[in-house]
Amino acid sequence: VKKMAKAIMADPNKADEVYKKWADKGYTLTQMSNFLKSKTAGKYDRVYNGYVIHLD
């Protein structure tokens, strides 16, 4: 998940494709939050927020 999150950060155009894969795998927002937690607070906030919007 972190590898794909980094791919989104490097190229935001990949976001919809990645979010669809995550949704197809049934990842919940709680799971995504836990996967994307980082020592650098807020590092993956943009990715998480994008997934929230995708699921909505």
Rank of each mutant, 00 (worst) to 15 (best):
V1C: 10
V1G: 01
V1R: 04
V1W: 04
V1A: 03
K2N: 02
K2M: 08
K2Q: 07
K2G: 02
K2F: 05
K2C: 14
K2W: 06
K3W: 11
K3N: 10
K3E: 14
K3A: 13
K3V: 09
K3L: 11
K3R: 12
M4H: 06
M4N: 08
M4E: 15
M4Y: 07
M4G: 09
M4C: 11
M4V: 06
M4W: 10
A5I: 05
A5M: 04
A5C: 07
A5N: 02
A5D: 04
A5R: 00
A5P: 04
A5Q: 03
K6E: 15
K6M: 13
K6C: 12
K6P: 03
K6I: 10
K6V: 09
A7S: 11
A7T: 09
A7C: 09
A7I: 13
I8N: 03
I8F: 02
I8W: 02
I8G: 02
I8H: 03
I8R: 00
M9I: 13
M9H: 05
M9A: 03
M9T: 05
M9K: 06
M9F: 07
M9Q: 05
M9N: 07
M9W: 05
M9S: 03
M9P: 00
A10G: 07
A10W: 09
A10C: 13
A10Y: 08
A10P: 02
A10S: 11
A10K: 14
D11C: 11
D11P: 02
D11W: 06
P12C: 06
P12M: 07
P12H: 07
P12V: 07
N13G: 12
N13Q: 12
N13H: 11
N13M: 12
N13A: 14
N13I: 08
N13D: 11
N13T: 15
K14Q: 10
K14I: 15
K14N: 09
K14D: 02
K14H: 08
A15E: 05
A15P: 03
A15R: 08
A15Y: 03
A15S: 11
A15I: 04
D16R: 10
D16V: 12
D16N: 12
D16L: 13
D16S: 11
D16H: 11
D16C: 11
D16F: 14
D16E: 13
D16G: 12
E17H: 08
E17I: 08
E17Y: 10
V18P: 00
V18F: 07
V18E: 04
V18C: 04
V18I: 15
V18K: 03
V18R: 01
V18Q: 05
V18N: 02
Y19M: 04
Y19S: 02
Y19P: 03
Y19I: 03
Y19A: 00
K20L: 05
K20V: 08
K20W: 04
K20H: 08
K20Y: 04
K20P: 03
K20N: 08
K21Y: 15
K21E: 14
K21S: 14
K21T: 13
K21C: 14
K21R: 12
K21Q: 15
K21M: 15
W22S: 01
W22D: 00
W22G: 00
W22H: 00
W22R: 00
W22A: 01
W22M: 02
W22I: 01
W22V: 00
A23F: 08
A23M: 10
A23Y: 09
A23E: 09
A23P: 00
D24T: 10
D24S: 13
D24G: 09
D24F: 09
D24L: 11
D24M: 13
D24V: 08
D24R: 10
K25Q: 14
G26A: 06
G26H: 06
G26Y: 04
G26P: 06
G26K: 07
G26M: 05
G26Q: 06
Y27G: 01
Y27I: 10
Y27R: 01
Y27P: 00
Y27L: 07
Y27F: 10
T28P: 01
T28S: 11
T28M: 03
T28C: 03
T28E: 03
T28G: 06
L29E: 05
L29R: 08
L29K: 12
L29C: 06
L29M: 07
L29Q: 07
L29V: 10
T30C: 11
T30N: 13
T30I: 13
T30P: 09
T30L: 13
Q31M: 13
Q31F: 07
Q31D: 13
Q31A: 07
Q31I: 07
Q31Y: 04
Q31R: 03
Q31N: 05
M32P: 00
M32V: 13
M32E: 02
M32D: 01
M32A: 02
S33M: 13
S33F: 14
S33E: 12
S33H: 12
S33Q: 13
S33L: 13
S33G: 12
N34H: 14
N34C: 12
N34L: 13
N34I: 14
N34V: 12
N34E: 15
N34M: 14
N34K: 12
N34P: 00
F35A: 06
F35W: 15
F35V: 07
F35R: 03
F35K: 01
F35S: 03
F35L: 12
F35T: 03
L36P: 00
L36R: 00
L36C: 03
L36Y: 03
L36K: 00
L36F: 00
L36A: 00
L36W: 03
K37G: 07
K37Q: 12
K37N: 09
K37M: 10
K37V: 09
K37P: 02
K37L: 10
K37F: 10
S38I: 05
S38K: 05
S38T: 10
S38Q: 05
K39W: 08
K39E: 14
K39L: 08
T40K: 11
T40W: 09
T40I: 11
T40G: 08
T40D: 11
A41S: 13
A41E: 14
A41V: 12
A41G: 09
A41M: 10
A41D: 11
A41F: 11
A41W: 09
G42A: 06
G42K: 06
G42I: 05
G42V: 03
G42E: 07
K43M: 09
K43D: 06
Y44E: 01
Y44R: 02
Y44L: 04
Y44T: 00
Y44M: 02
Y44K: 02
Y44D: 01
Y44Q: 01
Y44F: 09
Y44N: 04
D45C: 09
D45A: 10
D45P: 01
D45M: 07
R46W: 15
R46P: 10
R46V: 15
R46K: 14
R46A: 15
V47F: 02
V47A: 05
V47K: 01
V47W: 02
V47Q: 01
V47M: 02
V47T: 01
Y48F: 12
Y48S: 00
Y48K: 04
Y48W: 07
Y48M: 12
Y48P: 00
N49Q: 14
N49S: 12
N49V: 12
N49T: 10
G50Y: 04
G50W: 04
G50D: 05
G50F: 05
G50C: 08
G50S: 04
G50K: 01
G50E: 06
G50V: 05
G50H: 04
Y51C: 01
Y51L: 02
Y51H: 01
Y51R: 00
V52P: 01
V52H: 07
V52T: 06
V52C: 07
V52W: 08
I53R: 13
I53S: 12
I53C: 09
I53K: 15
H54F: 15
H54L: 05
H54K: 04
H54R: 04
H54G: 02
H54A: 07
H54Q: 03
H54W: 15
L55H: 01
L55R: 02
L55Y: 04
L55W: 04
L55M: 09
L55N: 02
L55I: 08
L55K: 02
D56M: 15
D56W: 14
D56V: 15
D56Q: 15
D56E: 15
D56P: 03
D56K: 15
D56F: 15
D56I: 15
